[in-house]
Design a protein around this nucleic acid. Structure first.
Lengths: 347, 347
DNA sequence: ATTTTAGAATGAATCGTTTCATTATTTTAA
DNA sequence: TTAAAATAATGAAACGATTCATTCTAAAAT
């Protein structure tokens, strides 16, 4: 591969001058600049990112760590970040932490030696401090936490409005006339799950409804978890008429469980999800859910990195992207309220 | 950040010796080795991948290019590759080409200067040669094509058995008694779409059934495309009794279109997909499909890279991962064959 | 025409490693 | 005990860029 040395030689110019042309410095006279450009063209020269990085102590790499790219919430995040990164000539190194703090740390420790421009991370364990992340800051990389934020983190962060979204979804169910509303949460050690729960509880409290403890089921953000916990809920003496699932995967599990118990959604049990996954409308019924604009989240995080590298010294961004209710078919009025109406409608 | 120079100083040893310890060379006596290890420990030293890379002209990076990570087929691929990569101490740089040859080329050209260990690519445009890929080979990176292979590529490649999978799916529909079977293909310029179509045609031919041209609808591998083309099929005078969709997204679109035409799947129209996406069983009916083991595909590709770097000089791997039929609920016997039976069954 | 000054070009140092020829030390053989 | 052989350790060069103090050149001022 051609090096700057060869360029310099071919253009009959010093290495320093070649470098100046490359970096668009003004102090190069036209004839020399032309010869260098010509040489670059004919040799098909691409500057070595490695050589440059070693000298500048910085690469155009952004390290992005997500729990698991096969969880359909994350590709949107990654894609949003990647697009903004690409436009600004940064490249994304993708890591799956499996929600495993050790794997995450291993990645972070090693990749820091690549002197990346930034780190975008959906952290595995919020109880841990952000030691390694702070090390990134110290060595001059921008750091943005996404989706979940460790309580001790005071730097840049981008999340969606978990609490408000959950509140709005619950309000929607309440307005339909539901009173027995259960929720299936993700692991409450994560802020996202905790905040969604608290939005749910706020709406319930505002409606003067108490929530029985067995109406709050904690599980993982998976289809299997949703199915399992829904089965539990459906077997309660006082079966809920609506379930607020903390994400769409859980909601998908709920739909399956409801079907397997020979019940109907939404007639017997309404379901509301969270995420607005692309595939949320292929279910029957199409899943009513809260859109949290994953792409925008990722894009915003990458933009923060870009800005920081460009010299933005403003105080920490704590960005909260508003959510939006996507009402589809998986929630309707509860039986008691609507039977006569429905029958009427049916014939 | 600590450098090898500091390690050497603290351990009272030359830089060369410190390097030898780092790389596990035998020619270091115990006391010196111990001091170096100790220094590494106390300084929390991590070798700079940049310095190392510049000298060795090679990084532990594997560049992976996929069309679009938000297409749910790809996260599995990426994850499989990432896992194998991580285990072998390689890191993945993820790129989305958007099926855009120019974007793909831009990525490839620039990232090659990072001297990656490998390139794993699902190519955007098969009609183009693999010039840039060959440049990777020349500069010592392993290259593996995935899922689709340019006709002029003679190197390592991993695909799934598109043709056979499609053949098996079509056979399944034929065995149920279907005669009017249509197919919705992906863009036929891609080998995967073309091979699936040819598997479909082989099965039809074997059954002595001719396929009307309007029974072959070409579109993109998307839900929207599937929906659109299914609507076309459903309005044909001779409406098909079964549709073989070239991937699950198309099949999802088909399910939607069928519902919107007030028809029932599988009673009126059977649908068969391809991919076995994780979410394929949240639809109603659950989608019968062909599993192509995306994770395994990705893992295999990464393994080839690992082996090549380790010195494997064997001739090109052309690996074809067998597919597997996943029969669920979206296909049944056609009306004519089964009406009496079904009625009987129903009561 | 000469001096001053501003701008252009150069070349060496540097970043953090690995590698290898050279030198130093230890071990073995005589 | 000494010489030869084997093994350890060293230090400088190299990778490909950027940076900056220095030198060179051309333009401006006298």
């Amino acid at each position: 591969m051609a090096t700057i040395k060869q360029i310099a030689k071919v253009a009959a110019v010093s290495i320093g001058t070649a470098s100046n042309v490359l970096n668009g410095l003004p102090s190069v006279r036209e004839p020399a600049r032309k010869r260098v450009l010509q040489a670059i063209e004919t040799l098909g020269y691409q500057p070595s990112l490695l050589g440059r990085a070693l000298r500048k102590d910085k690469t155009n790499i952004i390290v992005m760590i997500v729990p698991d790219i096969t969880n359909p919430f994350f590709p949107g995040l990654v894609r949003g970040a990647e697009d903004v990164a690409f436009q600004n000539d940064y490249r994304l190194v993708l890591c799956n932490s499996d929600n495993n703090y050790l794997k995450e740390s291993a990645y972070m420790r090693q990749l820091r030696t690549y002197r990346p421009s930034g780190l975008i991370i959906v952290p595995a364990d919020l109880s841990k401090g952000a030691e390694e992340a702070k090390a990134y800051l110290r060595s001059g990389s921008a750091v943005v936490y996404m989706d979940r934020i460790p309580s001790r983190w005071r730097g840049d962060a981008v999340t969606s409005a978990h609490e408000e979204g959950a509140y709005a979804a619950t309000r929607y169910l309440l307005n339909l006339g539901h009173k027995r509303i259960a929720t299936i949460t993700g692991q409450l050690s994560g802020t996202s799950a905790a905040e969604r729960l608290s939005g749910f509880l706020r709406a319930m409290k505002e409606a003067n409804l108490s929530v029985a403890p067995e109406y709050i089921q904690e599980t993982t953000f998976t289809k299997a978890g949703g199915k399992e916990k829904t089965a539990v809920l459906l077997r309660l003496r006082a079966r809920p008429t609506a379930i607020f699932a903390a994400n769409d995967l859980i909601a998908f599990g709920a739909l399956t469980a409801i079907r397997e118990e020979d019940l109907a959604c939404p007639e017997d049990v309404s379901v509301f999800g969270f995420d607005n996954l692309d595939l949320g409308d292929v279910t029957t019924p199409a899943l009513s859910t809260v859109d949290q604009f994953a792409y925008k989240l990722g894009a915003k995080a990458a933009q923060i990195v870009v800005n920081r590298v460009a010299g933005d010294k403003s105080p920490a961004n704590r960005i909260c992207i508003p959510t939006e209710l996507k009402v589809k078919d998986s929630a309707c009025m509860p039986r008691g309220k609507s039977r006569s109406l429905q029958k009427h409608h049916r014939r």
